[in-house]
């Protein structure tokens, strides 16, 4: 058992230290189509999602909550609420594009660092990177890939696998920091995945499995 845990730890450590994967270039005529496919993975306009969130945190703690996330891709704003299944609101926060405002935080969900981490996760999952893709092409397994330089030392890959599932890989330098894995829906006509898994690496490891309960377009909602 201990040996297995050690192997898993080493594998995760190696994964987190892996270099950015190679991208095979494609013809310029194909780039535009891949760019569009990468963009289409992210919700457009004002949307609201209600998810069950299964959180697996450091120390083996597991909990499930309900998350309500309203986003606007046009003005890059977020309003999110996390509550227990019984409906008790643990966190209510707004990101106005610049700063985070905590409307309500019940301990231990009241810290600014928790709020920042949560908003960072939502941005990674739901927002297309704000910088243009610097590399577009294919990977060794045939997956399509768009690479973005999101900061001085940060990069983000959006990878679309041949089976329709997709993934976001976020790097700091050459180190993998977070991944988002979106499963293929049973109903393939629905673009937004019904099940999304976020994994973080490094010292503050956790994973979140988001399963969609409801989603709405919010164009007519205040």
């Amino acid at each position: 058992m201990k040996y297995n845990l050690l192997l898993i730890s080493v594998a995760m450590l190696l994964a987190s230290c892996s270099a950015l994967p190679e991208i095979a270039p494609v013809a310029p005529s194909e780039e535009s189509a891949i760019r569009q496919q990468c963009k289409a993975l992210f919700p457009q306009g004002k949307r609201q999602f209600v998810h069950s969130i299964e959180a697996d945190m450091a120390g083996g703690r597991q909990t499930t909550m309900i998350g309500v996330t309203s986003i606007s891709s046009t003005d890059l704003t977020i309003h999110c609420v996390m509550m227990t299944i019984e409906g008790l609101v643990l966190f209510d926060g707004v990101f106005d594009g610049q700063k985070i405002i905590i409307n309500r935080g019940v301990p231990p969900f009241d810290s600014p660092s928790f709020a920042k981490g949560m908003i960072d996760d939502i941005i990674l999952i739901f927002f297309h990177p704000q910088t243009p893709a610097v590399h577009i092409g294919t990977m060794e397994d045939g997956a399509l890939i768009c690479r973005f330089h999101t900061g001085k030392e940060t990069a983000q890959d959006v990878v679309i696998h041949p089976n329709g599932s997709w993934m976001i890989r976020q790097y700091n330098g050459n180190q993998l920091r977070r991944t988002v894995q979106a499963d293929v829906n049973a109903n393939t006509a629905k673009r937004i995945s019904d099940k999304i898994t976020l994994n973080t690496y490094g010292s503050q490891r956790y994973s979140l499995i988001l399963k969609r309960i409801e989603s709405h377009h919010l164009e007519h909602h205040p």
Binding site: Q48, V68, H79, V81, G87, H216, H221
Partner: peptide
């Protein structure tokens, strides 16, 4: 039946 009413919610969440 549990109805959760929140300003943010487009419609109440029913459990």
């Amino acid at each position: 039946i549990q109805e959760k009413h929140l300003k943010i919610l487009a419609r109440p969440l029913i459990s």
